[in-house]
Design a protein around this nucleic acid. Structure first.
Lengths: 220, 220
DNA sequence: CACTAGGCTATACACGTGTTCAAACCGTGC
DNA sequence: GCACGGTTTGAACACGTGTATAGCCTAGTG
């Protein structure tokens, strides 16, 4: 398509891929070699390593948003795997995972985005009668998003061992298949037999000034 | 109590604390300085940096097990915060979090332990009539554990910025309070209005050879 | 008291990192 | 034909890392 992408673009692409494979913190010289370019040129174009990371962040956020990438609370892996099969998107998914793992400003941004997306999906489901309404839809969407992303992150291979982008779709798929049965159950039949705990909690929370009950942890 | 702990012990303690604060990958010389000891001595006693990490892993696993540290699925932060207030345990909790974040063999071991603990708690709850039984108790316990640990991990401050061990209990507590309402709701009133999706999934999964339904992701 | 073994330190080494810099290269317009 | 501005390179620098080595100082022992 594009006969010869500019070096600056090649660098960004190579960086995204390298960082996805080896984790953020991969040496600059490695991405330079991937891009078929000298190490100094990266600095010349992006100013510093950190700037390059920021550029990758912007790129990942853009690609994430325009691909309407949503994690979905339940079968988080399912849609990710579906998307990761498209050759082009595997690196950004890997980079997003690594960025979530490493923290930073983008991480918060991403979970906010995902939570917002999840919220509208949940509302659609509620309108369609598939999903029960919530006392606090935003909080519920955020909690579900965090749990989905978090459990995925927990399963992510360690940073040291590089993750194979070609096997990433299969890996995501197997992960989601292993988990979808139990979470589907959790979402279908409630964990707790009654709502007494929830009632007690919200009662205590609304009656006290702002504090929640102190010593009582959720039993499950 | 112990008038002067041996240098080897001081090193291990300092390492656990430093790694918890700055993340694994903190320089050896930093833990050396914390222990009031030269850098070479660490090598002399533990052989290499990696060996020291393994020693920390053993120590953390031991402390975790003998303190009956359980994350609990729902208010994961609650009990952790309670435990973190005990001066002695804050470093190991921090180290465990960092180790979960970094991956490695211990990470798997820890989630296995936590899942096993969660399983017995869930079974006790089921016996007491507080918790609904599951089609697959092990899988459910594991899923709940992964979600709890994962969402906690997602909220963990970035590796670069050190985490303040003295504020760790407060941080864990605020985290758990922010999340316990929505997860309590999720565990009380089911997300899905009926069990048709779960039924369809288990039907498809048991009828096909081993595969689960391919294109259908969970709607939430 | 001499001597030795081992905890312990300080220095040095090898290596990989990000970054800088001067020079070479290349296309373009005068 | 030629100077010029941007691109690109390769070598070099400064620094922080883990680790090896050689020595010191103390305690215990004959």
């Amino acid at each position: 398509m594009e006969p010869t992408p500019s070096a600056e673009e090649r660098i960004l692409r190579a960086a995204l891929r390298r960082f996805a494979v080896e984790g953020l913190g991969a040496p600059l010289r490695a991405v330079a070699q991937d891009a078929g370019v000298s190490a100094g040129l990266i600095i010349h174009h992006y100013g510093s390593r950190e700037k390059l990371l920021e550029a990758c962040d912007r790129q990942a956020l853009k690609a994430t948003r325009e691909s309407k990438l949503d994690v979905m609370s339940g079968g988080s892996g399912a849609m990710l795997a579906q998307l990761a099969e498209i050759e082009h998107y595997a690196p950004v998914i890997g980079y997003v995972l690594r960025r979530l793992q490493a923290g930073g400003p983008l991480a918060r941004q991403l979970v906010d985005d995902f939570a917002a997306d999840a919220l509208v999906y949940l509302e659609q489901g509620t309108a369609a009668g598939l999903i029960n309404p919530s006392r606090d839809p935003e909080a519920r969407a955020r909690a579900l998003t965090q749990m989905a992303l978090g459990s995925l992150l927990l399963q992510l291979p360690a940073q040291r061992e590089p993750l194979d982008l070609t096997e990433l779709p299969a890996w995501l798929r197997s992960y989601s298949e292993a988990l979808s049965a139990p979470v589907l159950e959790i979402y279908s039949v409630p964990l707790l037999t009654d709502t007494s705990m929830l009632d007690a909690y919200v009662a205590a929370a609304s009656e006290g000034d702002s504090a929640a009950p102190t010593t009582e942890g959720a039993p499950s």
